[in-house]
Design a protein around this nucleic acid. Structure first.
Length: 604
DNA sequence: GCCGTTTTCGGCCCGACTGTTTTCAGTCG
């Protein structure tokens, strides 16, 4: 879906350029909204790029933007975009990416000092000429300088698995310092919605002792800078520390992240939690819905709308609902909407809360490595940990021969490994000789660049489970990737397509296959598509899961265990599944042993 | 530039914080 991304990027840039030129800002908002919606589309826009009627059916796309899409799809150019680029120097768009620098300020800097690049901006801050810009003082200049330095450090967004431990650590610190004075505390934002990357961490607290909360937050360990500390809000930059040893990442200590603490009145906890959880698009949708019902919604509650300028809570108006998210949704005639669904992707049409998958539903791990290839656990240790988690089945799926770096198994070693797995099974039998946990002999077999598998059929047939995954040739083009992966799905011995695109978030984009074709093949062959739960992968991603679920495809959520801690990544895989509206029935890992084993045998 | 069971024209979510101002503009979420 390279076209979706290319169009979205241009529309977003058009929006930014309109803003910096100081032209009609509603036009800017429209372009930006269209860009977001196109980026979130679950299908390739190329398939309807010659059909104006279909294009305008997409939310936020009217006749003008449809024309722009058709023009770009046909010619690879967008005239409006190019004309604006002629008027707006590229450096201005870079400047707007710096936190604290918005369109108005960038425009003012451009108009007064004719500055159009980041280096020139830096120089103007250093020599003080920036102070001649209207409304620009010493403090603002220093803030911009600091923000530029943070931006230069690179990675803007944190991995989900990096951010969650930081948020939990902050909550622990505040709970410890404030004890019983904490009425409510939780994290909100994209973290609570389970997005694969996180911009910043939002912590909400309800407590009578506001001063102590702000003090504890700004003074906690790991804080490198206090950005703001007001009466009801504080912002800091805090260090992250996560073991990244499985992949070779340059900065092993991890970057810093902005964390915001919002102090919330106890009575408006639900309204604030909802507001700060977002998404922005979901909130806008709810506010609109409130207005339609003669109500107005803000972060203090849902109030009767009397069209006064002063906010209702400041005039002592009693809210219709405010204490819990549940009661606010109810007053808006909606079921409770789980945070992972709050993306304005149709959830506001729901009439009942869907029973989404939960961590507790998972009863098996179907993708795990041992010391035979690149894992750190023995077969027995792997199985013991799975049993401890209440799983009925664990699949040992070490790498195949082509994965040389991962110590992949040549056929002879694989055959010996199968024997070792059968032996290990004997150690996990109860008194009546029944398995306490079923240990499957499997393999994570490489899908070679042309779609053939890394072992021949004679070998594959002897395995209880085959997870087929792409590991090399991850930069081949979309059509080649589609052909390759569909061929693997159609292979008679394959059960699961492992990390289908091979992406590493923030590191490499991975394959860009035609998902609709992959899903269709998977549905037909009853092959499960994996959500790899490692937070650097989360592959399938949320939008792909949604597509697969809509088509009725089977999904596997697996931790791709290499070390003991990897089992803990399950929750990130489950969050991604929930973002894709995944219900337990479609997820093979939730199936009871007989049903799972029967499915596996149906491929033999 | 999009959108519409009050509208095909006239709207477009709402509040806190900061810094630069003397009453508010800009940015953010």
């Amino acid at each position: 879906m390279a076209l979706n991304a290319a169009i979205a990027q241009r529309l977003e840039e058009i929006a930014k350029m309109i803003e910096v030129l100081g032209e009609d800002q509603f036009r800017a908002i429209s372009n930006s909204r269209a860009a977001r919606n196109i980026d979130a589309l679950p299908f390739d826009i190329a398939t309807i790029a010659d059909d104006k009627a279909k294009l305008t059916e997409i939310e936020g796309i009217g006749p003008k933007i449809a024309d722009k899409i058709m023009e770009f799809a046909a010619t690879g150019k967008m005239k409006e975009h190019e004309e604006l680029k002629g008027k707006v120097p590229a450096g201005l768009l870079e400047m707007m990416k710096i936190p604290g620098l918005g369109p108005k300020t960038v425009r003012a800097i451009w108009q007064t000092l004719h500055i159009t690049t980041l280096p020139a901006l830096k120089k103007a801050i250093e020599d003080g000429t920036i102070l001649t810009v209207p409304r620009m003082g010493e403090k603002a200049a220093q803030k911009i300088k600091q923000a530029m330095e943070f931006a230069a450090q690179g990675q803007a967004r944190l991995w989900l698995g990096q951010a969650v431990p930081v948020a939990e650590r902050i909550i622990d610190v505040l709970k410890h310092k404030l004890g019983k004075k904490v009425k409510h505390i939780d994290y909100a934002g994209s973290l609570r919605r389970g997005k694969d990357t996180i911009g910043d961490i939002d912590i909400l607290i309800a407590t009578p002792d506001i001063a102590s909360a702000i003090e504890a937050f700004t003074a906690m360990p790991g804080v490198v800078a206090v950005l703001a500390a007001g009466e009801s809000k504080a912002s800091v930059r805090v260090r992250t520390d996560v073991d990244l040893s499985r992949w070779d990442v340059e900065d092993k200590t991890g970057p810093t992240v902005q964390a915001d603490l919002h102090v919330i009145p106890d009575a408006s906890w639900g309204a604030a939690l909802m507001y700060f959880t977002g998404s922005k698009e979901h909130n806008i949708r709810l506010r609109q819905r409130a207005l339609d019902r003669g109500l107005t919604l803000n972060d203090y509650g849902l109030f009767p709308d009397d069209r006064e300028d002063t906010p209702p809570q400041q005039r002592g108006i009693k809210p219709v609902a405010s204490r819990s998210e549940e009661e606010i949704y109810a007053k808006l005639d909606l079921p409770f909407i789980p945070p992972e669904l709050r993306e304005d992707r149709g959830e506001v049409e729901l009439t009942a809360t869907p029973r989404l998958i939960e961590v507790g539903d998972i009863k098996s791990e179907l993708h795990a490595h041992t010391t035979a290839s690149d894992g750190s656990l023995s077969i027995e240790a792997l199985a013991a940990m799975a049993k401890e988690r209440g799983f009925h089945t664990i699949a040992v799926t070490d790498h195949s021969q082509s994965s040389v770096i991962a110590n992949g198994l040549k056929p002879e070693r694989l055959l010996a490994h199968i024997e070792a797995i059968r032996k290990a099974q004997e150690k996990f039998l109860n008194r009546s000789g029944k398995p306490e946990i079923t240990i499957l002999a499997g393999s994570e077999v490489d899908i070679l660049a042309d779609g053939t598998l890394d072992y021949d059929d004679k070998i594959l047939k002897q395995l209880d489970i085959v997870v087929a995954s792409p590991h090399a040739a991850l930069s081949q083009d979309g059509p080649a990737a589609t052909k390759r992966l569909v061929k693997a799905i159609r292979h008679k011995y394959v059960h699961i397509l492992g990390h289908p695109t091979g992406r590493l978030i923030n590191q490499r984009p991975g394959l860009d296959p035609d998902m609709a074709k992959l899903i269709a093949a998977a549905v037909e062959r009853r092959v499960a598509l994996e959500i790899n739960a490692h937070w650097m992968r989360l592959d399938l991603r949320d939008t792909h899961v949604r597509q697969a679920v809509n088509a009725g495809a089977l999904i596997a959520i697996d931790c791709d265990v290499h070390a003991p801690d990897d089992y803990d990544n399950l929750r990130f895989g489950v969050m991604t599944g929930r973002r894709g509206w995944l219900t337990p029935d479609l997820c093979v890992n939730t199936w009871p042993a007989p049903k799972l084993h029967e499915w596996l045998k149906s491929k033999r």
